[in-house]
Design a binder for these strands. Structure first.
Length: 287
DNA sequence: CATTCGTGAAGACGAAT
DNA sequence: ATTCGATTTCACGAATG
């Protein structure tokens, strides 16, 4: 194992057997200590991202015995056969293969969306449950996978909008929404309405706004929350409006068009929302 | 000139029936 | 399955700087 390059290299011949495809780059940013607590996690020993939870037998690809000694020719051939059979058992029934494919999709989409690993884990768990409950018939693997990712991201407090999800998925938005609702209902999943604040960090950093502006945006949202200004309004729109309003208040250069761009929200909606936000701000004493 | 603002019609969505 | 009410979006023109 070549730790420096993250590659698995055959010690005998130098052949690179497997390059590490896992992105080890920063997955999330913590903007204050409370958020850090929210986002950080401690690695669990088992993982649901592998179709067998990583618990099934794996036969090492190296032709070494437990002590690291090389194997004789006869033993090598024997090991080859064992590996082959082991592989067959692992992907034996259709459910297992189904899972394998779905988890691959989940991983792909999660990567494309820059979602942290714990979200992929959650998505995997959700999919696994859906499969166990026989929710699959009549629905595509892709659709359920996508719905799982969507649900997982929201549960983890790092929501992605339906539009963003749609971009990386191979199924229609309407189908994702439909499947998502179905899965949530059938599995009794608890998904609170998305918190507008959880969108703020992403928008703010995309627009390269100062930390101060970002903080203002949060204040505006909390303020609005207390006054119940938001209800039935789109959380994304609220977040976008708060970011825009905060940029104005801190004299930073941004346009409605720019915010609208990164948030995938129409300018009109931003206009409507940020008026409401500023009104709410005036009714309450500023901190 | 770019950006922002307000309007009314049209589409999308969820809830209720 | 359809209807209804609220929200969002689009397209436009006007105002602001």
């Amino acid at each position: 194992m070549d730790d420096e390059h993250g590659e698995t290299v055959c010690e005998d011949c130098g052949l690179v057997v497997e390059s590490d495809e896992i992105d080890r780059g920063p997955e999330w940013r913590a903007f204050d200590s409370s958020e850090k607590d929210e986002k950080s996690r401690v690695g669990a020993p088992t993982t649901n991202m592998m179709h067998d939870k990583g618990l099934s037998t794996n036969i090492d690809w190296r032709d070494k015995d437990a002590y690291g000694n090389s194997l004789s020719g006869k033993q090598r051939q024997k090991m080859q056969r064992l590996r082959k059979w082991n592989e067959r058992f692992r992907t034996r029934d259709s459910k297992e293969r189904n899972l394998k494919q779905a988890l691959g999709e989940i991983d792909r989409m999660a990567s494309a969306l820059g979602l942290p690993e714990n979200v992929r884990e959650t998505a995997s768990v959700i999919y696994r449950r859906a499969l166990d409950e026989d929710l699959l018939p009549g629905r595509s693997i892709e659709g359920v996978s996508t719905a799982s990712v969507y649900a997982a991201a929201r549960q983890a407090g790092v929501p992605r909008s339906l539009d963003e999800i749609t971009d990386v998925s191979r199924v229609e938005k309407s189908e994702i929404a439909r499947t998502y609702r179905y899965v949530v209902r059938e599995l009794g999943l608890e998904v609170k309405p998305a918190d507008p604040e959880s969108y703020v960090p992403r928008f703010a950093s995309s627009l390269e706004l100062s930390d101060e502006a970002e903080h203002r945006a949060r204040q505006l949202l909390q303020n609005a929350k207390e006054q119940g200004v938001h209800s039935g309004k789109s959380p994304v729109g609220l977040a976008a409006a708060a970011v825009y309003a905060a940029a104005l208040l801190t004299n930073e250069k941004t346009t409605q068009a720019a915010v609208s761009e990164v948030a995938d929200i129409s300018e009109v909606t931003i206009r409507n929302r940020y008026h409401e936000l500023l009104e709410a701000e005036q009714d309450l004493p500023v901190a």
